[in-house]
């Protein structure tokens, strides 16, 4: 796997970001004065009640949504318009249903005009790494939800992006598949050193994966607290689940999220 990008400065910087959506009848504040700096190589997980603007936050970093006010930077450059230095994974796999798994992964290369041979080699590496071997030609509807999400993950990693943005990527999967995917994502993150921002509803997922957990409040979305996760960098799912530090943090988060939802 390719090495991590040069670890200088911040990977993602947000200061005073506010987003308001104006409809004909009303004005909604999705994000209110959000400031967050993310270092290269960090794995930041964002938890919060539904509709707290977590997804909007990712879209702002990607340059897909323009903040009403505030500054956003990606890799030390101000974000204006869609960013190319990222990989994006959505809750839905969002695959092209007429393409096989491998061709879906290679879409990234075709859209970017990457070198074909190099992209093909990289795709094969990723396919092996995510256990998609043998399913290269399978169409999306022939794959299970977990497999589809693996394909989406490979597609997002094909160009070795310095930043990976994930919007509840495993939200639609069953509990066991989800744990599997968590363990795999953790391994991939360790191997690639990519900066990851992952939005989730699951406290267990947030704590297991994150080096830092950001807790957001219900609408308007604000950052209530940020926790550094005191778990080893190299984590094993079963070990983490039985670790008292995991329990303590999970309990604290649950309490915090309960009050965040109740206050609204």
């Amino acid at each position: 796997m390719s090495a991590a990008p040069a670890a200088t400065g911040t990977a993602i910087g947000m200061s005073g970001v506010t987003v308001r959506f104006t409809t004909r009848r009303s004005q909604t504040t999705a994000l209110d004065d959000v400031s967050l700096d993310i270092e290269p190589g960090e794995f930041v997980t964002i938890v919060g009640p539904s509709g707290c603007g977590k997804s909007t936050l990712l879209k702002i970093v990607a340059g897909l949504v323009k903040p009403t006010s505030g500054e956003v930077s990606l890799l030390e450059r101000p974000v204006r318009g869609p960013q190319k230095e990222i990989g994006f994974v959505f809750q839905k796999a969002a695959l092209l249903e007429w393409r096989g798994a491998r061709a879906n992964i290679l879409l990234q290369a075709e859209m970017r005009g990457m070198d074909r041979a190099q992209a093909a080699r990289r795709a094969d590496e990723l396919i092996e790494m995510t256990g998609l071997t043998g399913f290269e030609k399978a169409l999306p509807h022939e794959l299970s939800g977990g497999m589809q999400q693996r394909v989406a993950l490979c597609r997002a990693l094909l160009h070795a992006p310095p930043v990976l943005l994930m919007d509840e990527p495993f939200g639609a999967l069953d509990a066991l598949t989800r744990e599997q995917m968590n363990a795999e994502l953790h391994r991939i993150w360790r191997e690639t050193g990519t900066t990851v921002v992952l939005v989730t509803h699951s406290i267990a997922e947030a704590v297991f994966l994150g080096t830092r957990v950001v807790v957001m409040s219900a609408r308007p979305g604000r950052i209530i607290r940020t926790f550094a996760v005191e778990l080893p960098a190299h984590r094993d799912y079963a070990q983490v689940m039985s670790d008292p530090r995991f329990d303590r943090l999970a309990t604290e988060l649950r309490g915090l999220l309960g009050s965040a939802a109740a206050n609204h």
Binding site: E128, G131, L132, T133, G134, F135, S144, G145, G146, M147, L173, D174, L176, T177, Q180
Partner: peptide, 13 residues
């Protein structure tokens, strides 16, 4: 890889 892939997804494969 192949066997792993089949097992990994368990019931939903």
């Amino acid at each position: 890889g192949e066997v792993g892939a089949a097992v990994v997804d368990g019931p939903s494969t």
